[in-house]
Design a protein around this nucleic acid. Structure first.
Length: 879
RNA sequence: GCGGACGUGGUGGAAUGGUAGACACACGGGACUUAAAAUCCCGAGGCCUCACAGCCGUGUGGGUUCGACUCCCACCGUCCGCACCA
């Protein structure tokens, strides 16, 4: 009987049907085994899934399936991050309602995910745009509002004029909107905020406990939170120069030790002192105005010169009232960090130095760098902010900067001025409160009502959800909710008078800040079913892209705490994600036609529009339709915008899901990018067929599993050892998410199996070992190529599902070798090897090593000084 | 500027401080075939050699160690994050 090729696309559909019919992946709350919550960051339903997206889900699925096999009760859900701008943009461009566009995409993408054979409990599916979801989010908002964790304030915000909405600080990348890429402008608006700063300290401190998170992500978050310890110092204004009504200014510094090096104060253009002074001085007023218009983009900031304007105001030095310092307005001082005012120490800060040099302000060194001569030391072009000894600093002279910090802090803390200390230790954060108002339609409505008499009135819980009106119009820019004729006009729940609904919706990052909680009980009446949350949280393994290192992951850590503190907590759990893995992307070459007009965007072409000729450096690409020459662009992450995507449906139809899964796991370490190539895919496809051929052949040769033979020949034993070792390493590497190594191990095992199949003669013990190898191979590939595994399992005569089978335990005796080959080094250089019994003593090994010809030759007659024997590994002869 | 990661054959990469280059791709040779596809076998870091042996090799230079891709220091390069945060 000749082997048939394995028809992956057809068989995969079959097995998916079987799994679904048997509800194999539906999570049972009462199932035995420890819980394991495996989650991949849920997708935005943008249209279609391509091979690039599939890597994330494949990794999660391999882990989830492995954990299931290991006896864990696994929760592995999937949902849709379904609110967001693209839906609204589609509405504007194609005149289709955002809801319809979104749900149609979900339909398509759900089918695509299912075609990958993911072990997902689809009964828990969530779409954040569904009122069933967002009514709970509105409830959470109201609870945060009650707790004072949500509030409204007028502030400067980042305005994206392309998307016509506000952006949070975290959503501004290099001065541009994270989605639109438009240069962000500053606007003053009244907005809703979440008080994430209240958790700054905790969010920072708790990073230490996240030992299963990548160090990189923890660092990025720590930097983002940006805690700094310093001193807040009150400077008294010189009465002769002070504007009316103002008599002091507060300055924040992290370097109070350099206080004697102060040569000026600088305040932000929006600082009250600047405004007061500007009111008297038209030139200063003009300068402040100019500052406001500068500095919205990174490019501006980089090129922007340090500019200042002397207000004429003078302040007294805290340690010497007769020492007057000028107060300048400076364009580089930020109003919303610290106190919006600094003291400048040019010797110790590069910016202050540049500023001082430009405006001829004094530069007095206060820290003598190690090795410098006090008599001759002068500040040159570079400020010194490092270590050294304090000089020119009165009572601080001779101290280290750290000690001087303490000395200044404790002295100013106890110096009283008008009944309060002059100085106070203060911790500052770079983190700002999270602005969540978005002037868009396709988001979760903020459930409050503005009443002329009662002010901001929360929508009563019984009136939730505040649903989006279906009949909004999308033909104009701006917020469709705001211009809807009736939606916003409601009665005040408090006094009954006509009032106005809030027309802003929530940032979609709110939606994704708690979906993992909702998955634990997606149909509960309360937002969070405490029992389910306690049973399942935290997420044991979270998998997603590094691009969320700050945004989503910081918001979620905050929001989980905030809702816990508002009564929706699971025990005293504070961190939602116990382990995080950030996977690399699938990349692909790009192709484009050179554009004719200057500055015009390239005209991207997708890989299936391309014909490639030649190889290596001589490859040329042509447009398959027109034959026109096409430029091969750089390799980039697969993305719709550059068209360098491979559609999942087409791929699965041709190669099958298992090939896609195997390919995206192969070669590259999972945290690094993997390059999509046709030859790489061919390699994966070949392996699928190879596994099938082997199992098929073994099933023919050994149709039934007979009792285990009493003894095994050397060949059979070697095969058994290879099988069990492969089983062991496959498990270990999957556990550690080192999928590329797991894949390599399975290739290696397949090579061994292929060799073992070569002798066509049948022997009882070898047959038994072959069958064992085939069965174990089916188990080993099951997490990665689940359909093929089922096919193999069935071919071996089982009528159970391998998805329901336990991961076999490797026999410990088969994991060790009795005869070892160990390397022998002379002075650290490999000179030979030694075949030796595993139980040989160190003395025996040493003697054997020293008698090797190669060792004797390498020693060249020198006496042996020392022999290091590392049992079962290596011998090093030192001579 | 600050912080971090990384640097291994033609390529992707492997290697608890212990035989560097597993495994795969590409490549070369061979088997099977009328032929092709598919499949299977063999080879392969560099230098020198008919071969054996030998020498050199994990960005560069030092260090620690019996032993370093791995740990430490400095430098070079690439990538990422933050960026007027006082």
């Amino acid at each position: 009987m000749a082997s048939e090729r394995y028809n992956a696309p057809a068989r995969e559909k079959h097995w998916q049907g079987v799994w679904e019919a048997a509800q194999v992946f539906k999570t049972k709350a009462d199932a035995a085994g420890p819980k394991c919550y495996v989650l991949e960051m849920f997708p935005y339903p943008s249209g279609r899934i391509h091979v690039g997206h599939s890597r994330n889900y494949t990794m999660g699925d391999v882990f989830a399936r492995y954990k299931r096999a290991k006896g864990f009760n696994v929760l592995h859900p999937m949902g849709w991050d379904a609110f967001g701008m693209p839906a609204e943009n589609a509405a504007m461009e194609r005149k289709v309602h955002p809801g319809r566009w979104t749900y149609e995409n979900i339909e398509v993408m759900r089918g695509q995910l299912k075609s990958m054979g993911l072990s997902i409990d689809w009964s828990r599916e969530i779409a954040t745009c569904s009122p069933d979801y967002y009514r709970h989010q509105q409830r959470l908002f109201l609870d945060l509002l009650r707790q004072g964790l949500a509030y409204r304030k007028s502030s400067k915000v980042n305005w994206d004029r392309v998307d016509n909405t506000v952006l949070a600080n975290e959503q501004v990348i290099d001065g541009r909107g994270w989605r639109s890429g438009a240069l962000v402008e500053t606007r003053e608006l009244t907005q809703w905020f979440f008080r994430i700063t209240q958790y700054g300290e905790e969010l920072l401190a708790a990073l230490d406990g996240l030992d299963q998170w990548p160090e990189k992500v923890r660092l990025m978050q720590a930097n983002w939170i940006g805690r700094s310890q310093g001193l807040s110092i009150r400077f008294v204004l010189d009465a002769a120069t002070a504007p009316a009504g103002l008599d002091e200014v507060e300055v924040y510094t992290t370097r109070p030790d350099t206080l004697f090096g102060a040569s000026f104060l600088a305040v932000a253009p929006d600082h009250p002192l600047a405004k007061a002074a500007a009111a008297q001085n038209p030139d200063l007023s003009a300068f402040c105005e100019e500052c406001r218009h500068l500095g919205t983009s990174v490019a501006d900031l980089e090129s922007a010169e340090k500019k200042g304007f002397d207000t004429g105001i003078r302040v007294r030095h805290p340690f010497d009232p007769s020492w007057l310092l000028p107060v300048w307005v400076a364009n580089f001082v930020l109003m919303d960090y610290g106190t919006g005012a600094i003291f400048g120490c040019p010797a110790g800060d590069q910016r202050d130095l540049d500023f001082a040099r430009k405006y001829g302000l004094p530069v007095k060194p206060v820290i003598l760098p190690p090795g410098a001569d006090a008599a001759t030391f002068e500040v040159g072009a570079e400020a010194h902010d490092g270590t050294g000894v304090m000089i020119n600093s009165d009572f601080l002279d001779g101290m280290a900067p750290e000690a001087a910090f303490e000395a200044v802090a404790s002295r100013l803390e106890t110096t009283m001025l008008a009944g309060a200390p002059v100085g106070a230790r203060k911790v500052n954060f770079r983190l700002r409160d999270w602005g969540i108002s978005r002037q868009r339609y396709w988001g979760c409505p903020i459930p409050v009502i503005h009443c002329g008499d009662c002010g901001v009135v929360p929508v009563p819980v019984g009136d939730l959800p505040v649903e989006l009106p279906e009949d909004a119009t999308f033909d104009l820019p701006g917020n469709p909710l705001d211009r809807h004729p009736t939606w916003k006009h409601v009665d005040c729940p408090s006094c009954g008078k006509l009032a106005m609904r809030e027309t802003d919706t929530m940032d979609t990052f709110v939606d994704s800040s708690w979906y993992f909680v909702r998955f634990t009980a997606p149909h509960a009446d309360e937002p969070v079913d405490l029992e389910a949350a306690r049973a399942w949280l935290p997420v044991d393994q979270y998998i997603g892209g590094i691009e969320h290192a700050i945004l989503h992951l910081l918001y979620s850590r905050f929001f989980f705490r905030a809702i816990s503190d508002a009564g929706h907590g699971a025990h005293d759990l504070r961190e939602p994600f116990a382990a995080l893995f950030t996977q690399g992307m699938v990349t692909h070459e790009t192709y484009f036609r050179p554009s004719t007009a200057v500055g015009e965007k390239p005209l991207w072409l997708s890989p299936d529009e391309i014909e490639l000729e030649g190889d290596g450096a001589t490859r040329v690409a042509r447009n398959a339709k027109t034959g026109e020459a096409v430029i091969i662009g750089p390799v980039e992450k697969m993305s719709k915008s550059k068209k360098n995507v491979v559609d999942l449906d087409a791929f699965v139809a041709e190669y099958g899901a298992d090939t896609a899964r195997w390919f995206v796991l192969s070669d590259s370490p999972p945290e690094r990018d993997v390059l999509y190539t046709d030859v790489g895919v061919e390699g994966a496809r070949r392996f699928v067929q190879r596994v099938w051929r082997f199992v098929d052949e073994i099933a023919q040769r050994v149709p039934d599993k007979s009792p285990m033979p009493e003894s095994f020949s050397a060949a059979a034993l070697d095969l058994r050892k290879a099988s069990h070792k492969a089983l062991h390493t496959t498990g270990r590497t999957i556990e550690g998410l080192r999928f590329n190594v797991a894949v390599a191990g399975l290739y290696e095992f397949a090579n061994v199996l292929g060799s073992a199949l070569q002798p066509r003669n049948s022997a009882e013990d070898l047959d038994w070992a072959l069958r064992e190898a085939a069965e174990l191979l089916a188990h080993m590939i099951a997490p990665m190529m689940p359909h093929l595994a089922e096919e193999c399992w069935a071919r071996l005569g089982y009528n159970t599902l391998i998805a329901n089978e336990a991961w076999p335990e490797a026999e410990p005796a088969l994991l060790v070798d009795d005869a070892l080959t160990i390397a022998v080094q002379v002075n650290g250089k490999r000179r030979g090897e030694l075949k030796i019994d595993r139980t040989a003593t160190n003395e025996q090994i040493e003697a054997a090593a020293l008698s090797l010809d190669t060792v004797i030759r390498a020693l060249e007659g020198r006496p042996v000084k020392k022999v290091i024997v590392v049992p079962q590994r290596i011998v090093n002869v030192v001579g």
